[in-house]
């Protein structure tokens, strides 16, 4: 069973990785710095056609077009922000893996913090409410208890 699973996982990984390799064209840049900016931007921008792939990973037509667009804009000396703005104007915030903080993305940014705070409150609450201290027995009750223990010992 284990070997079977391993083989399956290996196969899946191989298939996936070959797809990733296929997506990358070779672009030549004037300076290494431009090549680095291209690499960073295509990782940071999300493929609008796919649900969870960035431009550099995706093999779709639109990603290929947008990689070419990023390349053209980097060559034309556009700044990273200009390129991001160009993309957001056309494809919305969806294209950013790092969406800006605004009314529509409020839940996205705040929910994790709110959930952590709620979790902490619950933990604190649970820890504080220790079980009530045992009430001391009065003499009569103590005698009764002793009696019961004695009986149990004699008659197990």
């Amino acid at each position: 069973m284990h070997t079977y699973l391993k083989a399956l996982l290996t196969a899946i990984t191989l298939v996936l990785s070959s797809g990733v390799m296929a997506a990358i064209e070779t672009y030549q840049f004037a300076t290494p710095e431009m090549a680095e900016r291209f690499a960073d931007l295509t990782v940071e921008l999300r493929c609008p056609k796919c649900q969870n792939q960035n431009l550099s990973d995706s093999d779709s037509i639109i990603s290929k077009d947008l990689r070419r667009q990023v390349k053209t804009m980097v060559d034309a000396g556009k700044s990273d922000d200009e390129i991001r703005t160009f993309m957001v104007q056309r494809y919305g915030d969806f294209i950013l893996y790092d969406p800006p903080f605004k009314a529509q993305t409020l839940v996205l940014w705040l929910a994790p913090g709110v959930l952590v705070v709620i979790g902490l409150l619950v933990v604190v609450k649970v820890r504080r409410s220790k079980p009530a201290a045992p009430v001391a027995l009065n003499e009569e009750e103590q005698a009764q208890l002793d009696e019961l223990i004695k009986q149990k010992k004699e008659n197990p």
């Binding site: 639109i62 667009q69 494809y91």
Partner: peptide
Amino acid sequence: PKGQLGIELGVVG
């Protein structure tokens, strides 16, 4: 053919 107008329009597919 190269999807250049497509990019200008924000065409996804």
